[in-house]
Simulated scan of single mutants.
Amino acid sequence: MLRLLAFVLASAALLFAPAALTPARADAKGPPRAFFGVMVNGPLDADTVDLDARAADMTAAGVGSWRVEMAWDAIEPAPGQFAWGATDRKVLTAARHGIDVLGLALRAPAWANGGSPDPFVPPRRPAAFAGYLRALIGRYGPRGSLWAEHPEVPRRAVRAWEIWNEPNLVDYFRTQPFQKPYAALLRAAYPAVKAADPGATVLMASMANFSWRDLARLLSVGGPRLRFDAAGAHPFSGRPSNALKIVRLNREALDRRGYRRVPLWLTELTWSSAKGKKQPLTQNWETTEAGQAQRLREMYGLLLRNRTRLRLARVFWYTWATVDAGSQNSFDYSGLTQALPDGTFRAKPALGAFRAVARAAATR
């Protein structure tokens, strides 16, 4: 709820911002297939779900990349003891369907964060997090052990790594202000990833709410210049026009601090279709299923028209599937599909909108 309240405040603050970018015509060349991504979590985490069937639905809709959470506390609950099964399932499924994976490395086990049961307490030693990243690449990278164990699956290594999620919010990074401890984490992560896979992309964590302000603060932190290959943002807002302004403000924050060539990845973009399904509602955030589809169409149109000047590389919708019932969390109504109690999935109007946008972009 704190995050939702901040969305509303951010939307209100942006109402009087300068006009959004609207060039005369769209970029002449369409985006690569991987531009259209989705988060793969929630109902899809269940072992009972036929993930290959869902992946086939995604590729038919134009999805080219997945954002997959790789939680350190779940994968390495004790030093050197790894539980790869749940993550293996997603990476192998993506590979079978020719889908790229963005690995989201976040959370910390108690043995690494000073004994706290709260996984959002960051590790005491950034070097330990760097070691976890090396283990991930050792499993899923170009020479990863997963591919040796599964020669029947086309090798499609994970080549992009996001370093934590929304560290500017205390909900996801308990140490605040976040700038210095997160900078230490990123400074340890970057060389570790590059040493293990020189061709990998290191994505600085996406931030939400007043993301551009926190990005500017992070980039101005003292010490050695921060290194990363891409920057992320979560442009949550009630209106697509204001969401685009958030993207522009993040772009400007990067440009002004010498990161003009660094691309932007929107690793979470969404609107909730909770209107009529839950109470209370959050102004300008929750809408109907038809409203969700309309906002998706409008937002992707804006992003595609401004893709080149914003140096926008990928956009991930949050999320593919949600239960759409029985929750007060707006994100539990944000899926392109609804996971039904009988194990089937219902396509929401937003899925049709996503498919149409992706197909139109592919024909350019």
Rank of each mutant, 00 (worst) to 15 (best):
T282I: 12
W271I: 01
A243D: 00
K275E: 14
V247C: 00
E289W: 01
S206R: 06
G276V: 02
D214M: 07
G258Q: 05
I246D: 00
D229S: 08
R225K: 13
H234I: 12
F228I: 14
V262Y: 10
P235F: 06
L218E: 11
S206E: 02
E252T: 09
A205V: 02
T288Q: 01
R256W: 02
P235T: 11
T267P: 02
L244H: 01
N284D: 14
G258S: 09
P240A: 07
D255G: 06
L244K: 00
R261W: 15
N242R: 10
R239W: 05
K275S: 10
R251I: 03
K278W: 06
R260C: 06
W212A: 11
S272Q: 03
P224M: 05
P240N: 07
R260V: 14
T267K: 00
S220H: 05
R213G: 10
S272H: 00
T288P: 02
N242Q: 13
A253S: 08
V247M: 01
W271F: 04
S206P: 10
L269Y: 06
R213K: 15
L281M: 12
R213N: 14
G232W: 05
D229E: 07
L215Q: 10
L254V: 02
R213L: 15
M207L: 15
A290L: 07
R260M: 09
S241G: 13
R251A: 01
K245V: 02
R256A: 14
L266R: 10
V247N: 05
G258E: 08
T288A: 05
R213F: 15
Y259N: 07
L266T: 14
S206V: 09
E268R: 00
P263M: 11
F210V: 14
G222C: 11
T270E: 12
R256F: 03
E286H: 01
N242L: 13
G276Q: 03
S237Y: 05
S220Q: 13
T287K: 00
F228A: 15
P240M: 02
A230H: 06
S220N: 12
G238N: 01
Q279C: 00
W265P: 03
R225Y: 09
A231M: 11
A205R: 06
R217T: 14
W265D: 10
A216M: 03
P224A: 07
F236W: 10
